[in-house]
Design a protein around this nucleic acid. Structure first.
Lengths: 199, 199
DNA sequence: GGTAACTACAACGTTGCCGTTGGATTAGAG
DNA sequence: CTCTAATCCAACGGCAACGTTGTAGTTACC
């Protein structure tokens, strides 16, 4: 069988993603990551260094995937509901990302890949501000906070799964429930961000 | 000096609250809790059992404090903006609670004190539904989701502190920044939940 | 004064994880 | 075939955490 170092690397990182998302940086063990990947633990250290570096590497990858999958709408955010809906879809399909972000936030250290991410968010804020100037979005709210909140609309469900269960009593994995949540996210984003319409 | 078993208990729990909020259930050590409280570790086990029980006890207490401090408005939620604002104030003044809730959510086990909390939330949802029937709130949105989102409005800042820093570049502890955030929360809640007004 | 409860202190056994190492296998490249 | 590089395997040292225990001192209460 041929050497497949890229495959080895990929399998390790996939396993690390699952484990980190599930158990967090503290609760995850390097041994279990290696076992899940079916690869010797020693490979982890050769490829990724220590646990912290591995976590950052995992998070960076997942953020890149999100950015690639959920492109901002070309029409200047006037369809902000759908944009929020698509962000929600991504998080629903990839719940690991939200969890990784929450672990990172709770850990409290400096964010991984901070420079790139900051630039990415600043671009988003500028797009929101531009849409406000065009009248596509309400100028009643600060664009940075608005962008922050739209992200929250999509991710908050994963941040407090206990609350959703206690509040609604419904299974988050039920397809109907997911559809309802998505519709809510879309409408909430519209109510928040669109200029008031005539009643 | 007189025995002060209640004081000992309280000091231990306060120390545990700080440590758990900061480092999470995994990152917290019983030894450090005892050191912070200035009380021998062995007392922890006599009073609270193992680490998991202590965490649940801490969380239960903090939730009770929130419920006692932020009472639902008597006027049937037509002033939902202020209600959201007061919830925000509480979380801003007691950031431990949000962090404890996030740790709990990420851990994934069954929520501490589930029965009481479920009942508490169900009451909230009924209040929202009643306000919708009265026309004080829009009936465009599911009351459970709406309640969930209003909580999120107040807590999301603490869930993703990296994002707020990268998006706005501002210090969350700056008083002016806090005032702005509060105003945003109030307006966002109103835009979300109040019936459309004539433009 | 004697007894029971509370507390302090220190050390313990056990367990588990991190990150490393040395050597044995396996596969490709010249 | 030989040399190099990737992988596996097993074990290691070091450390820190959990939860317990035994002993000694302190306070309340009868």
């Amino acid at each position: 069988m041929a050497w497949d170092t890229e495959g080895t690397r990929r399998r390790l990182k996939e396993a690390a993603t699952v484990e980190f998302a599930q158990y967090g940086p503290d609760g995850t063990t390097m041994t279990r990551i290696a076992e899940r990947a079916g690869i010797n633990k020693e490979r982890l250290y050769k490829y990724f260094g220590d646990k912290e570096s591995l976590f950052e590497s995992v998070l960076r990858d997942e953020l890149e995937k999100l950015a690639a999958a959920v492109t901002p709408p070309a029409d200047g955010l006037k369809d902000i509901g759908e944009f929020a809906g698509r962000t929600f879809d991504y998080h629903a399909a990839h719940p690991e990302l939200a969890r990784l972000l929450l672990w990172e936030g709770l850990a409290g250290g400096p964010p991984a890949d901070e420079a790139n991410r900051t630039e990415h968010y600043r671009r988003k804020v500028r797009a929101f501000a531009a849409a406000q100037r065009d009248g596509a979005l309400t100028d009643d709210l600060d664009p940075a906070y608005l962008a922050f909140l739209v992200i929250g609309l999509a991710a908050w469900w994963h941040a407090a799964p206990q609350l959703t269960r206690m509040l609604s009593g419904l299974d988050p994995d039920d397809p109907d429930e997911r559809t309802r949540r998505r519709a809510f996210v879309v409408r909430a984003a519209e109510r928040l961000a669109l200029p008031y319409r005539e009643a």
